[in-house]
């Protein structure tokens, strides 16, 4: 059986909130290392990969592999009933029909309990190869959100170009064009505002802004976001969580001219 308790429901609420508009039905794959999720969006352009490691929970117990087939819209309805600071406990039997969720507000001695019906989901699992990316950009997640929102007003696509001089986001549309360039920036007193660019070779790729703005719904999960690019492979956008847990998005590039 599965039993996984989070000190605050916040993490799980925000993670589900971040992906619910991109993927609808997906399996939460539970085993002794934690809870993992992989799912493609309907048009098979983007892929979500989430890993909540066992260490993120206290306690965490899962003796065998359990797949929890969940409709995220339904899960969102249940999670809406959880206070951000409530403790959250997820429980399921070995071959479960339901996912049991318990929210506890310890200060108020209030306990709420929900059973969410599960479904059989037969999903393709994609193998994501280990990639040495040509460019890895770490930047404030709020800045990334601002850039994608601002450029969305100009065009449906953005070209991300990483060079030794910095990273440039540029868009061309019917009304004109726009760009934002960020240079490496490491303020000693404000680590959350750091922009770091690790570059093995210059790279430029074009992506759909519709998906990038969607990924930015994960912004509350982490102050920093990591963008990993290599020529002609999907962009990886990573929101790192405490203890090595993560929420990653992969986005297939736009190709040709």
């Amino acid at each position: 059986m599965l039993e996984a308790r989070l000190d605050t429901a916040n993490l799980f609420k925000s993670a589900v909130d971040a992906i619910k508009d991109l993927v609808q039905d997906c399996n939460f794959d539970c085993n002794d290392s934690g809870i993992a999720l992989q799912a493609m969006d309907n048009s098979h352009v983007a892929l979500v990969s989430m890993m909540l490691k066992a260490e993120a929970f206290s306690p965490f117990r899962c003796d065998r592999n359990i797949a929890l087939g969940v409709n995220l819209t339904s899960l969102t309805k249940v999670l809406r009933a959880a206070g951000r600071d409530d403790t959250l406990t997820l429980k399921a039997e070995d071959a479960p029909d339901v996912l049991n969720l318990v929210f506890e507000a310890t200060a108020q001695d209030r306990i709420s309990e929900y059973d969410l019906k599960l479904m059989d989901i037969d999903q393709e699992h994609l193998g994501i190869p280990d990639t040495e990316y040509a460019a890895t950009i770490s930047m404030p997640s709020a800045e990334f959100k601002r850039i994608t929102t601002d450029l969305m007003a100009m065009s449906e696509s953005v070209t991300i170009e990483a060079t030794k001089d910095g990273v440039k986001f540029s868009s061309t549309g019917d009304i004109g064009n726009g760009s934002i360039t960020l240079r490496q920036h490491t303020p000693v007193d404000k680590p959350n505002e750091t922009v770091e660019i690790e570059l093995s070779e210059p790279v430029a790729l074009t992506f759909s802004l519709k998906y990038l703005t969607n990924f930015c719904k994960a912004q509350p999960l982490s102050n920093q976001v990591k963008l990993c690019l290599s020529a002609e492979v999907p962009l990886m956008v990573e929101y790192g969580l405490e203890g090595g847990s993560y929420l990653r998005f992969y986005l297939a590039p736009k190709i040709g001219d």
Partner: peptide, 14 residues
Amino acid sequence: SSQQSRIEGFFKVQ
């Protein structure tokens, strides 16, 4: 103009 590629073109189905 540029064409949107699909994710399965890069990551193989397991």
